[in-house]
């Protein structure tokens, strides 16, 4: 017997269930410092491995190249360069979005890392790889210590 032509398992005899769990994650040692600094000061922090000459953003407490512990924290600019971008037309379940979202990977200045975030304050058609952008933060009262404390990045 073969069911290979049946794509929807609901069409054959089946048993339904879910995998329901709630999760509460901590941000970790590096994440705690990174996010509380965004929340309290609207500033981006990175860590640097002098030996490997790598500046980590998001920051880490270790260098992934040499495994040394890092405690060299530095403030980096809130500006960066669009490395790549895309416009998203569907949500996580594949349903169409009423308003498409433009996302970019932004290389933060003076670091070897960067952030994936929304682009605002411009039209998707105007975007180019290599474009300069800066972080726009939520007002202080709205910031909670999360990546969404940055509203979006906008062209400089």
């Amino acid at each position: 017997m073969s069911f290979e032509k049946i794509r929807d398992p609901r069409r054959v005899r089946h048993w339904k269930g879910d995998m329901e769990c709630d999760y509460i994650y901590t941000a970790g040692i590096a994440g705690e410092k990174f996010f509380t600094t965004i929340r309290d000061k609207a500033k981006l922090l990175a860590t640097r491995c002098a030996k490997c000459k790598i500046t980590y953003l998001p920051p880490r407490i270790y260098c992934e190249r040499c495994q040394a512990s890092l405690d060299n924290w530095i403030e980096v600019p809130k500006t960066g360069t669009i490395e790549t971008f895309t416009t998203v037309h569907m949500d996580n379940n594949g349903a169409p979005l009423s308003k498409p979202i433009t996302l970019a990977f932004i290389r933060i200045d003076e670091t070897d890392g960067g952030l994936i975030h929304e682009i605002g304050g411009t039209k998707p058609e105007a975007l180019k790889i290599g474009m300069r952008v800066e972080a726009v933060f939520q007002s202080k009262s709205k910031r909670t210590g999360a990546l969404t404390d940055i509203k979006y990045f906008k062209p400089v």
């Binding site: 048993w15 339904k16 269930g17 769990c21 509460i24 994650y25 901590t26 994440g31 509380t36 210590g145």
Partner: peptide, 26 residues
């Protein structure tokens, strides 16, 4: 965790499954 001494991030996966019962279990 409850008092917010450290930052926390919450998530509830919302995956639903429909398992075919197969031949023998069927």
């Amino acid at each position: 965790i409850k008092s917010g001494k450290v930052l926390t991030f919450k998530w509830r996966p919302n995956a639903k499954y429909a398992w075919t019962v197969g031949i023998a279990y069927g």
